[in-house]
Design a protein around this nucleic acid. Structure first.
Length: 274
DNA sequence: AGTCAAACCTGGGCGC
DNA sequence: TGCGCCCAGGTTTGAC
């Protein structure tokens, strides 16, 4: 499910609600989702802490708690972190419930059970698996045309797997990579070091544009994704290639095709993307 | 360095 | 209805 725009939307919806609330109890139904510390320690340490701030790095949610603790959450494919106002009955996919001191709850549900939690001292955040090696934030100031040009020049790998590589750019996933490549007119199999300056520019702008529009649309809900209030996004209505095989390209009319690249689907237009 | 397959899980959709 | 197959927004690991 969640790529950068979805995690960003969860972040902002939770940021509007959690800060100032205190965790008065935890129900953990699926201990394996807790990566560190032990499930028992996790529940013990988190109890009594107050939510201070909700942030994001790549596809990780960074939730700072009182006493210098950081709760790190990765939603992976089907994870949902939802502030639940009513005392709804628990679905079989709800694996963790934080009880809040205003009578409401923060629930984590995940059909495929891939999502993970870490609780670490704020200073030790680099100890979270994958965090230290994360690449640049594509909407941040380190991601520049100059950076992209330089990096592409030194790599021979194909564009699709490269853009999915979180140690290169943090936050892109299958949907937004395919959409960005289509907007840039670039074939997913193009070797990175074969792009001319005009193409690098097009890719740079397409990446930023598609992520910004995704955030403006409050994320893409293909199936499971909902934000921190349980609401679906709208960007699925704007997709030009993702999961549209056989349907006409909105730019040239040719049917969208699907390729298998490195075990992932790649949707693209054979007319527009070279 | 790059490429691939498999693993972690559950469920939806399709053909027969 | 049921079976078997392929697919799924992510990431890690290990092999070549």
């Amino acid at each position: 499910m969640p790529e950068l725009p979805e995690v960003e939307t969860v972040k902002s919806t939770l940021q509007e609600r959690l800060p100032g609330l205190t965790i008065c109890g935890v129900d953990l139904y699926l201990p394996k989702i807790i990566q560190t510390p032990s499930p028992e320690e996790f529940c013990r340490q988190v109890a009594g802490k107050t939510f201070l701030d909700v942030g994001r790095r790549g596809k990780y949610l960074l939730i700072s708690l009182s006493r210098g603790l950081m709760l790190v959450v990765h939603l992976r494919m089907t994870g949902q972190l939802v502030y639940t106002v009513t005392d709804e009955s628990r679905s079989k996919y709800t694996h963790l419930i934080f009880h809040l001191n205003n009578g409401h709850q923060l629930r984590f549900a995940d059909m495929r059970q891939f999502g993970r939690f870490w609780l670490v001292p704020e200073a030790d955040i680099q100890a979270v698996k994958g965090m230290k090696s994360l690449g640049v934030e594509p909407l941040g100031s380190e991601f520049t045309l100059n950076f992209l040009e330089k990096e592409l020049k030194t790599r021979r790998t194909r564009l699709k797997p490269l853009l999915l590589d979180q140690t290169f750019i943090a936050g892109l996933g299958n949907i937004y990579v395919d959409e960005a490549l289509h907007r840039a007119g670039l074939h997913p199999l193009r070797p990175a070091n074969t792009l001319n300056p005009r193409e690098v520019g097009a890719l740079f702008r397409a990446i930023r544009e598609v992520l910004e529009e995704g955030i403006a649309g409050r994320g893409t809900s293909v199936r499971d994704y909902v934000d921190g209030t349980g609401q679906a996004g709208t960007f699925q209505e704007k997709l030009r290639v993702y999961r549209r095989s056989g349907r006409p390209c909105i730019q040239c009319g040719k049917p969208i095709e699907r390729l298998r690249i490195g075990g992932r689907s790649a949707y693209f237009c054979p007319g527009c993307q070279r």
